[in-house]
């Protein structure tokens, strides 16, 4: 049972140093956050020298609770990089209220990412490289449409991962984050179509939000992530 978030003895067998050794730092995409003057936020840092699609290759999330936390860290990295890019390069005629709301969301996602990074410490996976080539950042529809996908996906990911967590402390932390993601999801949906905050696309007849397994979530997220993610050691 893990009682502390930061406990070096719990390093899983796949040490991140070993992983890092197989990576070569090649490119950095740096997004300077407007609300975080002077802090350069690394959205993507490491690129695999040789991409392999073999099973067992890629960035290993690890096992047990640490694996689930790294899974959450991976998703938060994706969201943070996305919103950093949105604020870096706002779509045409972004209204002031939308800029304020999206800047808030960016800050929340960056806070989630940096929290997981700090909490996981030496057990954290490296920075992932994102692939936003399918997103048109100058188009409101493209940006908000992608935000909707990411937020609904994030909610379903935490909802599905909760039962895989063994520690009460980690479960509570996941709970503290998922409801903020749900607040984001509802807002983004309302920006696209007022009143769609909890429509039948996401809420079933029992009044339940979606829950997805890590495999389902990563399959959906992988097209936005260049780095191969290996979730084979995650609890299921």
């Amino acid at each position: 049972m893990k009682n502390s978030l930061i406990e070096p003895q719990e390093i899983p067998s796949q040490g991140s140093d070993i992983l890092n050794a197989s990576f070569k730092r090649r490119s950095f995409l740096q997004y300077a956050g407007a609300g975080l003057a002077g802090v350069a936020l690394i959205a993507a840092g490491c690129k695999k020298e040789q991409v392999s699609h073999d099973m067992g290759e890629g960035v290993d999330l690890g096992s047990g609770d640490i694996g689930i936390l790294n899974y959450a860290y991976a998703l938060e990295q994706l969201e943070a990089a996305f919103y950093a890019a949105v604020i870096q390069n706002p779509y045409a005629n972004m209204p002031a209220n939308e800029l304020a709301l999206l800047t808030d969301i960016r800050d929340h996602e960056l806070a989630h990412r940096e929290f997981f990074k700090a909490a996981l410490s030496t057990k954290a996976i490296p920075a992932l490289e994102v692939n936003f080539s399918s997103i048109n950042f100058s188009s409101r529809d493209s940006v908000l449409g992608t935000a909707k996908v990411f937020e609904d996906l994030g909610v379903s990911a935490y909802n599905g991962a909760g039962k895989l967590i063994q520690s009460k402390e980690y479960l509570l932390l996941a709970g503290k984050i998922v409801s903020v993601e749900a607040r984001h999801a509802a807002l983004i949906r309302d920006l696209l179509e007022n009143g769609s905050f909890a429509n039948s696309e996401v809420i079933d007849m029992n009044g339940l939000d979606k829950a997805r397994t890590p495999k389902e979530v990563l399959t959906m997220a992988q097209s936005f992530i260049k780095t191969t993610i290996n979730a084979s050691s995650l609890p299921s």
């Binding site: 935490y158 749900a182 607040r183 984001h184």
Partner: peptide, 12 residues
């Protein structure tokens, strides 16, 4: 948890 996030959507 699936109810929890629905309540958060409502709150939003």
């Amino acid at each position: 948890l699936q109810i929890h996030s629905v309540e958060a959507r409502h709150a939003s």
